[in-house]
Design a protein around this nucleic acid. Structure first.
Lengths: 168, 168
DNA sequence: ACGCGAGTTGAGACTGAGTCGCAATCGCAT
DNA sequence: ATGCGATTGCGACTCAGTCTCAACTCGCGT
């Protein structure tokens, strides 16, 4: 929870491979821990540019790579284009519900699903390293607005398909 | 199974909205049903360019959009960049195991997971429209080659993280 | 069979996200 | 202070996908 913990992880990570904790990396790290939501790389760039000092796009991406690699930050392909990043609480993990209307991202964790995943892997002799599991649809807040109209139209468009189908 | 079935679905889909079944759309459709694997848009372009007639990149994408929209083809974000497409057997659905080594894509379907998904949605008042669920790792064939070395190194790189974590 | 207009196509310009190369600069162990 | 590897910013670049638009088709109505 306390930023210190992850900072020291990051610091150690850098040290271990002879990298430096520069002002830019610090700034990025701080900005990242100033909030908790999911974010995109360019978003971070803007945030840093406006309030703090200048930092180049390349550096953002490079630093984000380090953070992802160190396990502090997660990189997810959520929408149609680009990546989204999110802080990872140590040891924790969750999947996503993504609203097509408002873009809201809801995190969920279902142990039973995780277990079943493991079973699937075993069945195929597959050694899982990471996974991504996302459901797209309409969130509680947006449902009233959308109601019958679009949603049912979408469902009707694909005859015989009642089940959730893969996308994103 | 027989292409006819999906062709008529596609035809109906087009008709319904006053679109035409042009030679290009046909060619693409045929090429698509000539095989069964997952494929990328540009791959299709090459295939068509070499054996069949010329067809523009724009048309490939446009037609693929139609096919996806009609429910015949699925669009998935599987790797690091771009989309992958796959034929959808009517009513069927599956998720993916993706090998980081050889790129192989294994399809799986686990009803219990699907049910749990529904439960999660209910819990959050979320109306799911589509979902994507992918596990990345090393497939059975590649495991011998990779063994301890990389895999265990990767696991060790993130201390305290034994569980599968989100990515892709 | 013919004509016409909506629908479609190809070429290439364009976009957005992310990456790369490189010269200038910085951080830190000595 | 010195030196050298690590780092930065810039801008050029790539790649996938989208858009524009003039030229061309399809297929319905006659």
């Amino acid at each position: 929870m306390k930023p210190h913990r992850e900072l020291s992880i990051f610091r150690k990570y850098l040290e271990k491979r002879g990298l430096k904790l520069t002002a830019e990396r610090q700034a990025l790290f701080d900005e990242l821990f100033a909030r908790h939501e999911h974010f995109e790389a360019d978003e971070l760039l803007v945030r840093l540019r406006t309030k703090h000092k200048k930092i180049s796009r390349a550096t953002i991406y490079r630093t984000l790579d380090l953070l992802v690699d160190s396990g502090i930050v997660g990189r997810v392909r959520i929408g149609e284009s680009g990546y989204r990043y999110e802080r990872l609480r140590a040891g924790e993990h969750h999947d996503h519900l993504i609203c097509n209307e408002c873009g809201r991202v809801i995190e969920f964790f279902e142990p039973a699903i995780e277990n079943l995943q493991d079973e699937v892997c075993e069945k195929y002799g597959f050694l899982a390293i990471s996974h991504s599991h996302q459901l797209r649809g309409i969130c509680r807040q947006c449902r009233p607005r959308v109601t019958s109209r679009e949603a049912s139209a979408a469902a009707a468009a694909v005859p015989g398909r009642l089940r959730i189908l893969p996308t994103a």
